[in-house]
Simulated scan of single mutants.
Amino acid sequence: MAGLLGMLFTLAFVAFYFVAMWKIFTKAGQPGWGSLVPIYNLYLMVKIAKRPDWWIILALIPILNLITIVLIFDIAKHFGRGVGFALGMLFLPFIFFPILAFGEAQYDATPLAA
């Protein structure tokens, strides 16, 4: 019985996280269903962060995939959030991604200054 409850809790948690990511992608003007598709969701995150398309290749290479940290910081900036929020997205994604998704943050599509 405990195993079944644990599995149901995990499925509910994962479903909630998928809904939050769908909402974030939609807020950024991207297709929400794209958050569910591996690799394609990375492509859309690169677009949301306003980084060059070739960053996808870097994100797929071990060690170089640490650039996904930069993507998270850029996404936070495009939603009007600061470094502290980006760190929250990095270390506590199950809390901060839903805050970004269901909060009042609006996506700003202007490119970031270098």
Rank of each mutant, 00 (worst) to 15 (best):
L112Y: 07
L36R: 05
P111W: 05
L71S: 06
F73T: 04
D108K: 14
F13Q: 04
M21F: 11
F25A: 03
G88Y: 08
L44Q: 07
G80Y: 03
M45G: 08
P62E: 02
F96E: 00
Q106F: 01
V19G: 07
L8C: 14
W54N: 00
F102M: 13
M89C: 13
L112W: 09
I67Q: 11
T26W: 07
P31F: 09
T110K: 14
F91N: 08
G80N: 08
W55A: 14
P38S: 07
A109G: 11
G34K: 07
V14W: 08
M21G: 01
G3N: 13
F9L: 10
M1V: 11
G88C: 04
P52T: 01
F9A: 14
P38K: 03
G6M: 11
M7R: 11
F91C: 11
I39N: 12
L92K: 00
K23E: 11
A113L: 12
A109C: 08
L58M: 15
A105S: 15
L5F: 15
A20E: 03
A114C: 02
A12Y: 12
D108R: 09
M45R: 10
A109E: 15
M1C: 09
P31N: 13
I63W: 14
F96I: 06
L100Q: 01
P38G: 11
F102R: 08
P62S: 02
T110M: 04
I24E: 00
Y107E: 03
L60G: 08
Y107P: 00
I56E: 04
I39M: 10
A105F: 15
K77D: 07
R81W: 09
P52H: 06
I61G: 10
K47E: 12
W22I: 05
V19W: 07
N65R: 02
L100F: 03
L92F: 10
K77N: 10
F25H: 03
G82A: 14
A12Q: 10
L36K: 02
V70F: 03
L5W: 13
I95R: 01
S35V: 04
W55L: 13
I57H: 03
F102I: 03
H78Y: 12
P31Q: 13
G34R: 03
L60S: 09
W54G: 00
I48P: 00
Q30V: 02
D74A: 12
F25N: 00
L100A: 06
I72F: 03
K47I: 07
F9R: 06
L64E: 04
L8M: 13
L11R: 14
F25T: 00
A101C: 04
Y107F: 07
L66M: 06
P31H: 04
L71D: 03
I24C: 01
Y107L: 08
K47T: 05
F91D: 04
D53I: 15
L87M: 12
T110R: 15
I39C: 13
L36G: 06
F91V: 14
L71E: 02
F97C: 01
A59N: 10
L11N: 07
V83R: 13
V19C: 04
G84E: 11
G32C: 11
G29D: 01
G82Q: 10
F102G: 02
F85A: 05
V19S: 09
W33V: 08
G29L: 02
W55D: 12
I39F: 10
F73Y: 14
I39E: 13
A20I: 02
L36W: 15
Y17N: 14
E104G: 12
L92A: 09
M7D: 11
F91K: 14
T26F: 01
P52C: 05
L36F: 13
G103L: 13
A2H: 10
Y40V: 12
